[in-house]
Design a protein around this nucleic acid. Structure first.
Lengths: 216, 216
DNA sequence: AACGGCAGAGTTGTGCACAACCTGCGAAGG
DNA sequence: CCTTCGCAGGTTGTGCACAACTCTGCCGTT
């Protein structure tokens, strides 16, 4: 059975979003629809469909006659987006929190393992990837679809600035902080307290914003 | 000077969104890209670009070989979206509230006039239009762009259910309630208290949700 | 030397033809 | 009468050619 066109769109979209957020395509990079079409083995049409979504979400900007550019995120936009993300993180605990199942606790164990390994061998890119995966996990803690979509959109909107500024941060300390967040989240959820887990998340988003934009 | 392609996309997008939310295209309606292209005087390509955005926002669904269908909103999704919208309305007052300028108060006077006229001659469609305009006005009360975009997205996602259920509501009472909201908002903003205006908004979204989904 | 303009290459936007697909109808066969 | 098959019509998805546009580098002029 051939791949559904909707599934292919989703695959292209996620792949490109990943490349943007992992800085394979850094802010300012110029993409070529023709080259992308060649790389993904299709014509420009499906590529343009995926690029359109990324443009609507603010990760790309297409300029006629120039090219498709990866956008940058300025400090002010970042600060405001983080302020909103903090509130949304808390809402994950307050609106339709999902029941804590054994499957969720098992996934948490997986994250604890990965976080542990990361502290032993810090690596910025692996951290960024782990952070994304942990974010996706966090979305499963609410049954409110609108809240999930909104949080996801905002997260990926600013996800890349961490990697952009990693040189100015202490990677080992970042890894430690992340492991602490996973541990605290596990503690809260094992206690059957999703609201506490949400507050842990909010606290870490807040601290992350301060580390990324000192002085604001 | 000819129209920019970005401006045309925006025009098409808003026009179609309007038609969906005013039930010119009711849920389940089947659109034809060819017909739309003929009506708007272009080829299918720009039409498809606008339809793609509407599909990504959940207002449309394209099915290969079938057509492009206007989606419906079920009770559960509505309830959760409203719950989130209530919280976001409050955040408009808490995160980066915009300074209350004379221009804002002047716009409010305009809304009071329109609301007054509406109570004298109730009309569902005019009300829906006025409600949208007042919503857009409310967005100008925060300087947080992420919050604005998110609120807008969620609003238009469920805006049409009011018109869908108007037969089961008391139109005159709805108009009265709306006029009261405008008056209360004006009172709060004239007092220089954006947070109070935000709480008024939250209260009215809450009451609206109850009227639309009694028993939840 | 500085400036203007022109041509060329490269990019995104648009239009069109066709492929892939779904639905409904009608006729043939049970 | 009921079922099933096939076909015709219409729809969205894809590919391709060209239009519209931008940038760069070069050349001629001042």
């Amino acid at each position: 059975m051939a791949e559904d066109s909707r599934a292919r769109l989703d695959r292209l979209y996620r792949e490109m979003r990943q490349r943007i957020c992992l800085l394979d395509w850094p802010p300012g990079a110029r993409l070529s629809e023709t080259e992308l079409a060649a790389e993904f083995g299709t014509s420009r049409t499906p590529i343009r469909r995926a690029l359109a979504r990324l443009e609507d979400e603010g990760l790309l900007q297409s300029l006629h006659g120039v090219g498709t550019l990866v956008t940058d995120v300025d400090r002010e936009e970042m600060a405001r987006t983080y302020a909103l993300r903090m509130e949304l993180a808390e809402l994950v605990g307050r609106l339709s929190p999902a029941p804590v199942t054994p499957a969720i606790l098992a996934r948490l164990d997986g994250f604890r393992d990965r976080a542990e390994r990361l502290t032993l061998q810090p690596d910025a890119r692996h951290f960024a990837q782990l952070n994304m995966d942990f974010f996706d996990f966090g979305l499963s803690l609410t049954e409110n679809a609108a809240l999930r979509e909104t949080s996801e959109r905002l997260y990926y909107r600013t996800a890349r600035i961490w990697l952009q500024q990693i040189a100015a941060l202490d990677l080992a300390e970042e890894c430690d902080t992340f492991r602490a967040e996973v541990d605290e989240t596990a503690r809260a959820l094992r206690a059957g307290d999703p609201m506490a887990a949400a507050l842990v998340r909010r606290a870490h988003i807040s601290m992350s914003a301060r580390r990324l934009a000192p002085g604001d």
